[in-house]
Simulated assay, not measured.
Amino acid sequence: MIEFSPEVAESIITIASFVASGLALIAGVGPGIGMGYAAGKATTAVRRQPEARGAIITTMLLGQVVSGSTGIYSLIIAIFLIFGI
């Protein structure tokens, strides 16, 4: 088994935390793409049925809130990893 000095072990843990936080922030890309796609589809739906505008926008916003929460969770996890909370 490899024995590391405390300074080296702390450096390895710090580097691993930074790499893991970067990977956690990649999770923010998916919600961003999904929200843009949903907004585009909602715009198309409102253009086709202007009388249903209120229901379409309400449904779109609810879906964006739910999908955006995963991006917020990944940001919080990245902050925890960086600052060691």
Rank of each mutant, 00 (worst) to 15 (best):
A45N: 05
A39K: 01
V65D: 05
Y37I: 00
Q64D: 08
E7P: 01
G40E: 06
I79D: 05
L61F: 14
F83D: 11
Q49D: 13
T58A: 10
F80D: 10
A20G: 09
E51W: 06
F80A: 03
I13K: 10
L25P: 09
I15K: 04
Q64M: 15
G36D: 06
R53I: 12
L75W: 14
S74G: 15
A9V: 07
A39Y: 03
E7V: 01
A27S: 10
A9K: 04
Q49V: 06
A38I: 05
P50F: 12
G28V: 08
G68L: 13
Y37S: 00
E3N: 00
E7F: 07
G34I: 03
G84R: 08
G40R: 01
I12D: 01
L62K: 05
A9N: 02
V29F: 04
A55V: 10
I77N: 06
E51L: 01
T44P: 04
A55R: 14
G32Q: 11
L75A: 09
E10P: 11
G71K: 08
E3R: 02
T43N: 00
E3H: 03
S67A: 14
T58E: 12
V29P: 01
I77E: 15
I13R: 08
I12K: 02
I72H: 07
P31S: 01
G36W: 11
V46C: 06
Y37M: 01
T14V: 10
E3V: 08
G68R: 13
A9Y: 06
A27T: 03
V29M: 06
S21A: 14
R47G: 15
V19M: 00
M60L: 09
